[in-house]
Design a protein around this nucleic acid. Structure first.
Lengths: 198, 198, 198, 198
DNA sequence: GATGAATGAGGTTTCATTCAT
DNA sequence: AATGAATGAAACCTCATTCAT
C-alpha cells in the first residue's frame, strides 16, 4: 500500500504538521474557529481527521501551536522594549517594529481580532492578553495623564485596524501601510510631548 | 397545567419576546454567537427551546431583531450627518454623537467587535458593514490625503477600542470615556486641519 | 376587534371547516400527508393552527373527514353492486360508475395512491382497504380461474393508473379517459367470457 | 473499550454499509420513508446514529444508494430493449424480464409505489420517473392508437399491482405470479395486434 | 369562532474525539 | 505516519397538540 502512494503524497512526507498549521490558519482566519471543523481541514489536506490527531492532541492545540510560532516576535519585541530607555525614539521604534510584526503574521492577527469572543475561552486568549499587556507596558507611561495613555493604546489599535478596516478604502496597500504607521507614530509622539509638557 | 402556572410565570406573559432579546444579547456578548445555544437561552428564561421558535423563526433572526432595534441611532446619525456641511464642527459633533450611541448599546457593539468572523457570514454582518461605510462617508473626506483619512478611521476605532480595551487600564470609567472622546476629537481635528493646510 | 374584521374575513364566516378540508386535501395530495404540516394549512387559510383544532380534533381527523365525504359514492356503488345479478353488463356498469367516481374525486384518490405507506398506519387506510375489498367482491368472481380474477383486479388498477400515470402521455384528456375506460371494460369482459368458456 | 467489543460486533466489521442498506430498505418499505427515523435504523443495527453518517452523507443518500444498486437491471433492460426490433416477441420478452426484475427487488418497488408523494420530492423520484419513461418508450408504440397505448401501460401496472394488491387474494404465490404475467402478456399482445389490424 | 403562547417529543445533522489496526 | 469505523454529546429546528382567554 505504501508503495502505491502517488507523487503528490510522497512529497508531503514529513511536513504534514506544517501543512496542517497552514491550512488551519487559513480556514480559521477565513471562517472563524468554531465554524472551521477538523473534517474541513482534513479534506483540504486530503488526509483523514484521525491524521490530525496524530500530529496534535486537540483542535485547540493546533491553534496554540500556530499562535506560539507566530507571536514569538512580539515576545522578542517586549523583551527588547523592556531593556530600552523610555524615550520617544524607543516608542517610535516599538511602533515601527510592531507594525512589521503585524505585517508578517496578518492572518493570525486577523483571526485573533475577529474571533475574540471565541478566543477568550481558549488558552491562546489568555496568552494573547498577556502579550498585549506587555506591549502596553513598554509603550504606555503609567505616569502620563489619561488622555496620553489613550493615545498610545489608540496607536496600537490604529495599527490593528489598519490591517483590515482600511481594506475598503481606496489606495495602494503600501501607501496605506505608511499612512497608518504615520498616524500611529504621531499618536505616540503627541502622547510623549503631552507628558513632557504637562 | 396552565391553571397551575406560578406567579413568576404569569408576570412574564406578553414580554417574552423582549426577554429573549435581552438574555440572548447578554449571552451572545459574553460567550459569542456560536457558543451560545438556544438551549442555554431557553434555560435562562425558564422556557422551552420551542418557545423561542414561537417568537423568532431562527437563531439568526433573534440576532437580527436585536441588531435592528439597537443600531437605529446610527442610521439616524448618518442621515443627520449627510445633511450637515462638511465643517470641523460637524465632524466633532459626529464623534460626540457616535460616542454616545456606542455607550448606549455597549453589549451589542462588544458583540459585533468580538464576533466579526461569525457575523461576517450572517445577515447582520453585511448590514453592519454598510452602516460603518455610511459613517465613514460622513466623517472621511475622500479628497484629503491618505494620512488624514486614516486619522478619521482611527478616530472611529479609538471610540470602539475605548469601550473594551481600556477596561484593563486603571481609572474612573467616566474619566476614561472623556479621554477617549478627546483623543478621537483630536484625530478628526488634525485630519481637518491637515486637509486645510495641505 | 370583531368589528374591524375585513371583508375577506367576513365572507369566510361559517365555512371555515369546508375551507380547511379543501386546502388540506390540496396540500396532502401535492406534498403528502407527513410533509404537510398544520402550520402550512393554517397559513394558506390565514388563520392560526389553533383554529384548526376548533374544527377538528386531530390532524388525522381532517383526513378522515375528507375521506368519508368523498368516498361515499364508492360505498353506494358497492351497495348497488351487491344487489345486481353477476352478469357481464353489471360488471361493465361497475367499471363505468367507478371510473366516474374516480373522476369526481381525483385529488383524494391521487393522495391515497401516493401515500399508501403513510395511510396504512392511519384509520383511513383500513377503511380504504375495506372499500377496495368490497369493490373486488362485486367485480371478481371467486369461482373464476386465477387469470380472470387478475384481469378484474387489473381493470380496477388500470382505472387508477389512468388518473396519474398517463399524464405524461400525449393526447386529449377526455380521449385518454375513454381509452382507459375501454381497456378496463375489455378486461372485465374477457374475464367474464373466460369464466363462461372455461 | 474497543478491546472489549463482543464477537457479534466484531463480525459486523466491514459490512456495516450493506447492513444499513438492508435494514433501511426493510423499514422504508414497511413504514414509509418519513416515518422511518435514523434513530430507528441505528437501533436495529445496534450502532449510533452518527455511525450512519459515517457511511452516508444524508438520509436521502441511503435511499439513493439502495435505489441505484437495485434498479440497475431496469437500466439494462431498457438498454437491451432499445436495440431490439419492435416485434411482438420483443414486447413479450420485455414483460417477462420486467416481471423477473420486479420479483428480484420487491421491497424497493413496494417502497417506490407506496411512497410516491414523498419520493417525488427526492432525487430518486426524478430518476425513477426517467426509468419508467424509458420502459414506456420500449414497450409503447407511439404510432398505435390511444387504446393500445393504454393497454401497454396497463400491462406494466398490472405487473406492479401484482406484487402487492393481490396479496389479499387467495392462491399460491407462484400461481398468482404466472397469472399476472399472463394477463400482462395478453395486454401487450392485444395492443400489438390492434395496431397491426388498425 | 378563534388567537396567542407555549410545550414535549422527536427529527436530521455535525462535531471533536477515540482506538484498533 | 495514518486510516477506518465508530461514539456521545449537542446543535438547530419542526411538529402536533393544549389551553386560557
Amino acid at each position: 500500500m505504501g508503495g502505491t502512494m502517488d507523487v503528490t503524497k510522497q512529497q508531503r512526507r514529513g511536513n504534514t504538521r506544517q501543512r496542517i498549521q497552514d491550512v488551519a490558519l487559513d480556514l480559521f482566519a477565513e471562517q472563524g474557529y468554531e465554524k472551521t471543523s477538523l473534517r474541513e481541514i482534513a479534506e483540504h489536506l486530503d488526509v483523514t481527521k484521525a491524521a490530525l490527531y496524530y500530529h496534535f492532541k486537540t483542535k485547540e492545540e493546533i491553534l496554540v501551536s500556530i499562535f506560539d510560532d507566530l507571536t514569538q516576535p512580539i515576545l522578542d519585541l517586549i523583551e527588547w522594549g523592556r531593556q530600552q530607555p523610555h524615550t520617544l525614539e524607543t516608542k517610535q521604534e516599538i511602533v515601527r517594529r510592531y507594525s512589521a510584526t503585524l505585517a508578517g503574521a496578518t492572518p493570525l492577527f486577523r483571526f485573533m481580532q475577529e474571533n475574540q469572543a471565541t478566543v477568550r475561552e481558549l488558552r491562546v486568549g489568555e496568552t494573547f492578553k498577556e502579550r498585549m499587556q506587555g506591549l502596553r507596558e513598554i509603550i504606555v507611561d503609567p505616569e502620563a495623564d489619561l488622555t496620553d495613555q489613550v493615545r498610545c493604546v489608540s496607536a496600537i489599535f490604529t495599527l490593528h485596524a489598519g490591517m483590515f478596516f482600511l481594506q475598503d478604502i481606496a489606495g495602494d496597500p503600501e501607501a496605506k501601510r505608511k499612512a497608518v504607521l504615520e498616524v500611529a507614530t504621531d499618536l505616540v509622539t503627541q502622547a510623549h510631548r503631552g507628558g513632557a509638557e504637562g
